[in-house]
Each structure stands twice: as C-alpha cells, then as structure tokens.
C-alpha cells in the first residue's frame, strides 16, 4: 500500500523557540557549525490510492495550520 510522507514545518518568519533551544544544546556539545535548528513534524499516511489533490486538501485542512506552518509531501511506494 502506498505511503505518503508529509512534512510540516513552522513558517520561516516564525521564531522556533524549541529549535533555538536545541541549537544551544548542540553548541554546548561543540557542534558549533550549526547555525540554526528548525523542528517540524513527519506524518506518514498509509493510503489505498494516491490522489494528490486530496492529499493537499488533507494537509491544508488539518495536518498543517496555514497560519503558522508550511507543508510538503512525497509518495513512498
């Protein structure tokens, strides 16, 4: 059965306070090359068929909040 992998990320204009905290922790562990950390969500959907219009609708209606988040997806067979 096809799997759709949806990733949801905070809009770039929004401060990701959790990401910033993780970046600070990485720096403390001497990973100083890290400039920024953004934390998102990965949502895997197992579907009977792939209808991209419906996937985009699911993302826009529920999986992501367009006020604060962007989404993208890939179909993994």
């Amino acid at each position: 059965m096809p799997v759709v992998r949806v990733s949801v990320t905070l809009k770039p204009s929004l401060l990701d306070s959790a990401g910033r905290t993780v970046a600070d922790a990485l720096h403390r562990q001497s990973f100083t090359e890290v400039q920024d950390v953004r934390i998102g969500k990965l949502i895997e959907l197992q579907v009977t068929e792939v209808d991209e219009a419906r996937i985009r609708q699911m993302c826009a209606d529920l999986l992501a909040n367009p006020v604060i988040e962007d989404f993208s997806y890939e179909v993994v067979q």
Binding site: L10, L15, S17, A18, T21, N65, V67, I68
Partner: peptide, 17 residues
C-alpha cells in the same frame, strides 16, 4: 477557536519555552 477559524491567528510555543 483559532483552529476552528472563528478567530484569526494562532497560538504557538512561549518564547522562553
């Protein structure tokens, strides 16, 4: 109410975590 579209905007993690 924000998630339902009855009010504008959204509420996210406090700045100081």
């Amino acid at each position: 109410l924000c998630e339902s579209g009855l009010l504008p905007g959204a509420l996210v993690r406090n700045v100081k975590q």
